[in-house]
C-alpha cells in the first residue's frame, strides 16, 4: 500500500537525476561512429593543381590529421591561425576543401597562410558524406594503420589541441 504511493516520487527522483546530468551534456554534439574504424579511402584532385591527385592509400604508415574546411565557413576562419601555428610545429596536417569554389579556397590560403601539406578538393561533398561530416570544420586524427582515432567537431581549440590531440599524436607516433 505504502510503496504504491511512494512510487511516483521515486520515479521523479530518477528523472531529476537524468535531467541534471542532461544539463551538462551537449545535445548538438554528435560523436562519430567512425572512431576506431578504418578511415574511408578516397582519391581527389589536389586543390590548386588538379593534374595531381591525393590518395589516402599513400598515407598508410603515417599518422596524420585531416582537416575539413571551406572558405564559406566562418568557424574555419576562427580556427585557421591555430592551424598555421600547428603547421609551424610540423604537425602533419592535410586539408580537405569541402564543397568549395577552388579560387575562393585558394584565396583564403593565400591571405591567411597555408597550414596544409596538401589540400584535397571535395567540390561536390561526397568525401564529406563518407566521413560523416555535418558541419565544417571537422578534424580527424588517423593512425598508421589508417584507423580514425579521434574526431574534433567544430574548430580546434587550444585546449583540445593541448589536452587531447597532441598527447594522442605522441602516443600514435610510437
Amino acid at each position: 500500500m505504502k510503496l504504491k504511493l511512494i512510487l511516483p516520487l521515486l520515479l521523479f527522483v530518477v528523472l531529476v537525476g537524468f535531467l541534471g546530468k542532461g544539463l551538462f551534456l551537449n545535445p548538438r554534439e554528435v560523436p562519430s561512429p567512425l572512431i576506431g574504424k578504418p578511415a574511408p579511402t578516397f582519391e581527389a584532385p589536389v586543390l590548386g593543381d588538379s593534374s595531381k591527385t591525393f590518395y589516402t592509400e599513400e598515407m598508410k604508415g603515417k599518422v596524420w590529421l585531416l582537416n575539413m574546411w571551406a572558405s564559406w565557413c566562418v568557424a574555419c576562419r576562427e580556427e585557421h591561425p591555430l592551424l598555421v601555428e600547428m603547421r609551424k610545429h610540423d604537425i602533419p596536417l592535410y586539408g580537405l576543401a569541402y564543397k568549395d569554389v577552388e579560387t575562393n579556397a585558394l584565396a583564403v590560403l593565400e591571405s591567411m597562410g597555408d597550414p596544409y601539406i596538401t589540400t584535397a578538393n571535395d567540390a561536390d561533398g561526397t568525401i564529406g558524406i563518407d566521413y560523416g561530416v555535418y558541419g565544417v570544420p571537422e578534424t580527424y586524427v588517423i593512425d598508421k594503420k589508417g584507423i580514425i582515432r579521434y574526431k574534433q567537431i567544430g574548430p580546434i581549440t587550444p585546449e583540445a589541441l593541448r589536452d587531447t590531440i597532441l598527447p594522442l599524436l605522441k602516443e600514435l607516433a610510437v
Binding site: V30, P33, D130, G132
Partner: peptide, 8 residues
C-alpha cells in the same frame, strides 16, 4: 547513413 553519421 548510420555507418557514417551514427544512429542520430
Amino acid at each position: 547513413l548510420v555507418e557514417r553519421y551514427g544512429d542520430f
